[in-house]
Computed example of a mutant assay.
Amino acid sequence: MLTDTIIEDDRWSEMGFEALAEAAAEAAFLHLGMEARDFEIAVLACDDARIAELNTEFRDKPTPTNVLSWPSEERGAEVDGDTPSAPEGLDPELGDIAIAFETCAREAETAGKPMADHVTHLVVHGVLHLLGYDHIRDKDATLMEGLETAILGKMGLSDPYEI
């Protein structure tokens, strides 16, 4: 399996999060032409209180957020809009993702989207971060959002950035 899931909040189990996370991560790898079986990602399915602790500890932001990611090494592109470093030679342990139930549920409800669709998007988003994609610079954001939209589209899900 590509994902090693740790479920701290039982509500994630009730929605079948482990299978959802695996499918989302595999779809990202497939779209990028990478062999998912060569890599491992740790995924923490937690609540807002836990992710707020992590957000405080690692980003000095004492609030909950929807998803956090920690790549095992820096992989980002030096030039805005360029593709991150090639997958050859990547550490097989790509890094960690944490996702918070309450924030995801609230965002899904606000957007009028099924929780599973929103969570799938956020897992794909986290996986792309682990692979070096980012959205801080404008062209990087365009590249990353385009990939997310394409990956989710292949999964039969709507564009998460469509207004």
Rank of each mutant, 00 (worst) to 15 (best):
T3D: 02
T3G: 02
T3F: 01
I7W: 01
I7Q: 03
R11M: 01
M15V: 15
M15Y: 05
E18N: 06
E18S: 12
A19M: 10
A19E: 14
L20V: 10
A21Q: 04
A23W: 04
A24T: 09
A25M: 03
A27H: 03
A28M: 01
L32H: 03
G33D: 00
M34E: 12
A36F: 05
R37P: 01
D38P: 00
D38H: 10
F39A: 02
E40I: 06
E40L: 10
V43Q: 10
L44P: 01
A45C: 11
A45E: 00
A45Q: 07
D47M: 01
D47L: 04
D48Q: 01
A52F: 06
A52L: 10
E53H: 12
N55A: 11
D60K: 14
T63P: 00
P64M: 05
P64T: 09
T65W: 07
N66R: 13
N66C: 10
S69F: 04
S69T: 08
W70H: 04
S72V: 06
E74M: 09
A77K: 02
V79I: 14
S85V: 15
S85A: 14
S85F: 13
A86K: 13
A86Q: 13
L90Y: 15
P92W: 13
E93N: 14
D96S: 09
A98N: 09
F101V: 11
T103H: 12
T103L: 08
C104G: 05
R106V: 06
R106S: 08
R106P: 00
E107C: 05
E109V: 11
V119Y: 04
V119M: 04
V119N: 01
T120H: 12
T120N: 00
G126N: 05
H135A: 07
K139C: 01
K139A: 08
T142N: 05
M144R: 15
M144Q: 14
E145I: 07
E145H: 15
G146F: 06
E148G: 03
T149I: 13
L152W: 09
G153M: 10
K154I: 04
L157D: 00
S158N: 12
D159K: 11
P160A: 02
Y161I: 13
E162T: 10
